[in-house]
Design a protein around this nucleic acid. Structure first.
Lengths: 349, 349
DNA sequence: ATGAAAGCGCTAACAC
DNA sequence: GTGTTAGCGCTTTCAT
């Protein structure tokens, strides 16, 4: 009696293969393939028998065998900075939704904005032989991305322009979005608009600051450098930066937070400082997260269509060749109740 | 002259294989394997040559070939309801972080709480031959999960108990968490506490309602069924439900929202109804999302350690056998400023 | 210490 | 219309 052949209780049943189905249906391997895939001619009777055998055995094709043969996996990688951040979460939902309709599957990675982690994840994705990668690149690892492209892995970058690489990129109009927000604050009479910005290493950090400066230039209002505070786009350093900004001389009467994490920090810092919004300080933030409209007063925002961008990124990965260069998505300025006109007490008539 | 062999500009270089490395290093396939994997003996000199050749060719092992041979992929699936919801986002960050340290990779799927979508995604994950799946199950598709277990795919469920299936499950103490919140409101003098609940089909929906009822029973306060409104855990139906709850007779003087999406809806409905928090209506919510402490007043919450749960889920998948039954995680009741004592005007002395 | 060869599950070309 | 076979890239056993 052969112990190996007994159906052990604890031993999981090996996943069934085409060969199993072929034996069960009493046909050859090729016939099973033709019957199940629809490629090639099979008689109706045979097809019936094969389908029945497959169903009975609970056969499920192996994506591994298939991928190995076809040199194509239908898997794509997604590298975001922080999936618990609503912006990336919305983007990811968009990628997942479009990927599903395209018959693709998504391996999600969270880099924490760390180039080393990004590198490790990209390496993993290449080993998994993904067909493409959607990434919010840290700005490092140029050789890595070049290598990926050489291997025929389709790339799409989001939110940041990677200088020197020819990768299709999806980006919002940071300069215009930021500029419209700051113009609005200046038009309300604010002359000391604090800017809570991201790192200069990212396009989104740099460009939003450019918009801030352009708005000042066009309004003829001088920029006070001490009102510009740069922080990482993460919670750890954000609070200290926001607090520092509120303690600047002169104290800002309005504040523009250049992403949702920095805005959170700003609101907490404002409350901690005993200031009221909008009486003491007006606030505008970049990125229309769900809680922005919950606040009292509701926050005025520069809205970016994160989910739609995710959709589009997945489409771009699936249709390489149709996508070139940088696609700029417009932002929308949504005025709510977090800003108030400012009349400088010193110069009041 | 052979055209095929020329390095075409547009033709991507095929990913290098062990065979390529073997030829470049002038050794056999087995030697390359032994040199790169560390399994087996290789002379120092040979190892050196192999490593150099691999580096020079930019060789990257194929997870496909490896997985096919080993019948094990080191990939795990994660099925959440909505990755843009902060709760799932935090959980996912936890899974990703732990998976990384365990050398595993995560295919993320978003079911939208739809059993059909869940089924399709689970099917995909099984075809991908994932080693395990972490899921927030909809409660349907029992046969599917049983089949997965039979195939030796390790399962971990989160947030919901699936009756009739023996799957290790990670869950917060919904009854106790909910009960402590409602006890608090009753102790403040509220006698008409509205309950904005999730669907009865999910454990988290049912149990939180049980906590609500137990708190009333122990305080000797009768439950008014018209103050219990159930909604799906999604934005579409939440707002209508919240509005309906606020129009109940008697009007609730306090409100317990059983998840973060319902809480969002409740706050908007409160504002739309022209009510003030906490003067007109006290509020407690389940799940301590980042914006809860941003609100003025800051919201009192039942906090659940979402990220830590994600960590633990990944560990459980990686160490099957060590995990059995249902692991209940305690919640934490965090009192902030969104509740106020209530003295019924009719019975005031 | 190293080379040769089999086989994981699938696709596709070929033979009948 | 159907069966057979080679090969994708890797791991592992068996010779040498």
């Amino acid at each position: 009696m052969d112990i190996q052949s007994s159906t052990g209780r604890g031993t999981p049943a090996r996943a069934k293969t085409m060969k199993d189905v072929a034996e069960a249906a009493g046909v050859g391997l090729g016939t099973v393939y033709r019957a199940l895939s629809g490629n090639g001619q099979v008689s109706a009777a045979t097809r019936e028998r094969v389908m029945a055998a497959a169903a009975h055995l609970d056969y499920r094709p192996s994506a591994l065998g298939r991928g190995l043969k076809l040199q194509r996996t239908n898997n794509i990688g997604l590298i975001v900075a922080d999936i618990s951040n609503n912006f990336y979460g919305e983007f990811a939902e968009g990628v997942l939704a479009s990927a599903k309709t395209l018959g693709k599957h998504v391996i999600v990675c969270s880099s924490g904005e760390d180039p080393q982690t990004e590198r490790e994840y990209a390496e993993v994705l290449l080993q998994q032989r993904v067909d493409g990668i959607v990434a919010f690149p840290t700005g490092q690892n140029a050789e890595l991305w070049e290598g990926a492209q050489r291997l025929g892995v389709h790339l799409v970058f989001a939110d940041r322009i990677f200088a020197g690489l020819d990768v299709p990129t999806l980006i919002v109009d940071n300069v215009a979005g930021s500029q419209s927000a700051v113009e609005y604050l200046l038009a309300l009479g604010h002359r000391h608009v604090g800017y809570l910005g991201g790192p200069q290493s990212l396009t989104s950090g740099r460009e939003r600051e450019v918009g801030y400066r352009q708005a000042h230039a066009e309004a003829g209002v001088p920029v006070l450098e001490q009102l510009i505070v740069r922080s990482r786009f993460t919670r750890d350093t954000a609070h200290a930066s926001a607090t520092r900004l509120l303690q600047s001389e002169p104290r800002p009467t309005a504040l523009f937070a250049s992403n949702n994490v920095l805005a959170e920090a700003a609101l907490i810092a404002i409350r901690d400082a005993g200031l009221r919004m909008p009486e003491d300080v007006s606030v505008v933030m970049f990125d229309d997260v769900p809680w922005a409209k919950l606040m009292t007063p509701a926050i005025t925002v520069v809205s970016q269509p994160a989910r739609q961008m995710g959709n589009e990124a997945a489409q771009m990965i699936a249709n390489p060749g149709r996508t070139h260069g940088i696609r700029v998505i417009p932002t929308e300025f949504v005025i709510r109740q977090s800003c108030r006109p400012w009349h400088d007490p010193d110069t009041a008539s």
